[in-house]
Write a protein that binds this DNA or RNA. Structure first.
Lengths: 159, 159
DNA sequence: GTTCAGATACTCGGATAGGGACTGTCCGAGTCCTATTGG
DNA sequence: CCAATAGGACTCGGACAGTCCCTATCCGAGTATCTGAAC
């Protein structure tokens, strides 16, 4: 899996702590973790295309969450970066085997495909069951100082 | 995910129908689905290294299941091909952030990592809960002619 | 008929190229702020 | 003093190379089998 997923998740989490209406440039988000700014910008563009964050150009511009953390699941973020196609893609091997039905859609009937798809659904279900708000609350519960520290750090970067 | 996983699963399934003690060369397994023989051979080598199949050199040699299908989970096959590392690997981004503890292992304490790991465990659990025997039985239930057809086809290829 | 040696053919196993995707970087289009100038 | 305007700086967005892993292929090491002859 692309490492951009990790960057996107942590960046969304940071954005969730900032006051709403405040946009943060990609350069600041990158400096926070010493990441390459241009490349993180690329990942944020993907999040913007997916409607997870909204982007604003010009001075005082940047990125901010496009909707409340309660309405952003971890699956949304992963899909925005990795794409919607499932990890195991059935090439319909059976269609190339003996006694194959050329008209059949083996992505549905092949039991190997079904078994892999079930695992994929379990993975997606686990990610879809956790919102960014859940994750945010969990962090605040374990590390109460994190929200304040994060806001202060970004304010310092802004100076 | 590597397409070799699909090839390996179907090949293991085919091997499960043949009488025990009978080895099948990689070339025959490849011809069954019109796959490149040398490359499928590479995947079968990975299965052999993982102890899922056993290999025999020389005439009448080839591959066969190393243990009963009841003791081979789908996860075993996937891990043999894809490797044991989980899809989401935590780069410990927090260690590069402000206020980081250099001695901490953020792969454990980072809650983002934990969330992703939970999804990974759900995926692995689903795959580990299905054995090759389960899959085999399911195929035999839906397509009763498959085992006999497969054996006959391999016998024809052997001619 | 039996046995043994040699040759043969077959199979796996690892070493060797080619291609696509992820990683990383750069510059241009658009936007907002600001300073200046004229009324 | 106020307003309009031109300039400038900042930010996103997409277009351009570098690198690693997956895909694909080939040839050599090892082994069981078969043939033939000798006993």
């Amino acid at each position: 899996m692309s490492e951009g997923v990790e960057w996107a998740l942590h960046s969304c989490l940071n954005l969730s702590w900032l006051p709403i209406g405040q946009a943060v440039p990609a350069a600041k988000l990158a400096e926070f973790y010493s990441l390459p700014a241009a490349y993180l910008n690329k990942q944020l563009q993907a999040l913007a295309r997916a409607g997870i964050v909204s982007s604003t150009s010009g001075p005082r511009g940047g990125f901010q969450l496009a909707r409340s953390p309660e309405r952003i699941t971890l699956l949304d973020v992963v899909v925005a970066i990795e794409g919607a196609e499932e990890a195991f893609r059935c090439d319909q091997l059976l269609k190339r085997g003996p006694g194959a039905d050329p008209a059949a859609d083996y992505r549905e009937s092949c039991l190997v495909s079904q078994a892999m798809r079930r695992a994929d659904l379990a993975w997606r279900g686990e990610l879809a069951g956790q919102t960014l708000a859940d994750l945010k609350a969990r962090v605040e519960r374990h590390y109460p100082a994190t929200p304040g520290n994060t806001v202060n750090r970004f304010a310092a970067l802004r100076a």
